[in-house]
Amino acid sequence: MSEATRKSTELMPSGSDPSSARVRIRHFSKSLPMSLLRAREAVMRHFRASLRRFGITEQQWRVLRALTSGESFEVTELAEATFLLAPSLSRILKDLDERGLILRSNLPSDLRRGIISISPVGQNLIERAGVESEAIYREITGRYGSERLAELQGLLRQLEECLEGPEIAG
């Protein structure tokens, strides 16, 4: 019996069919989703205090930043752009609207389709918070290096593009 066969059969209950053997999965700390989450957490840890000073959450900041990249968004487009589920986005938009940070309207051709844009008050908040945000980016860039940061962003874009399309069958 080969070493690989012996190891795989060690994981099976006695008398089991080898075709139904349990697979030994990689260590939790080595999983790609966890590595990405840890890196995200390491980055966001530096931005949270600034966001709190401006009275906004990470998700609210994400929505406001997305709104600065275009004139207006349909709600479904905004959900896709910010990777927020519709129910979460609805609550966030309600809060941002109550605070006067966004403007809501409907498509004249279809009143069911909501259009969201950033208000002048929201734009002012982005400009003020953006000063701190850019200072944090400069600090991160100083620690990690501008070339390495650009390379990392390129690698992440490549990973995203490579995984677009049909899901990988398991």
Rank of each mutant, 00 (worst) to 15 (best):
A66G: 03
R48V: 14
A66C: 09
L159Q: 03
V75L: 10
P33T: 08
Q153R: 14
F54N: 08
A169Y: 03
Y144S: 09
S88Y: 09
Y144F: 15
F73W: 15
L103K: 10
G130A: 00
L84T: 01
I116E: 07
L111D: 09
P18W: 05
I56C: 09
E74M: 11
E161I: 02
I56T: 13
P13K: 11
R65P: 02
I56M: 15
G122V: 02
V43F: 07
I116M: 04
A42S: 11
Q60Y: 01
F54E: 04
R22L: 08
I118T: 05
D110Q: 05
A135L: 08
E151W: 10
E147D: 15
Q60I: 02
L159F: 05
D110H: 08
K7H: 14
L78C: 15
F54G: 02
A4M: 03
A49Y: 15
L85E: 11
E127F: 03
R99Q: 10
N124M: 03
L163Q: 02
E147N: 09
R24M: 09
I116D: 06
I168N: 08
G170K: 06
E132R: 11
R6S: 10
M1G: 05
R104C: 02
G55F: 01
L101A: 04
L51K: 15
A49M: 12
M1S: 06
A66M: 06
L107H: 14
R53S: 11
E98D: 15
S2M: 03
L93I: 01
S72M: 12
E98P: 00
R91A: 11
C162E: 11
L84A: 01
P18I: 03
M34K: 11
M44I: 06
M34W: 12
S8F: 07
T5P: 03
F47K: 12
S72A: 14
G70S: 15
R45M: 07
M1Y: 10
R62A: 15
Y144A: 13
R65G: 04
A135M: 13
L152D: 07
R40F: 13
R143C: 10
L159H: 00
N124Q: 13
R52F: 10
G154P: 04
F73Q: 11
L159P: 01
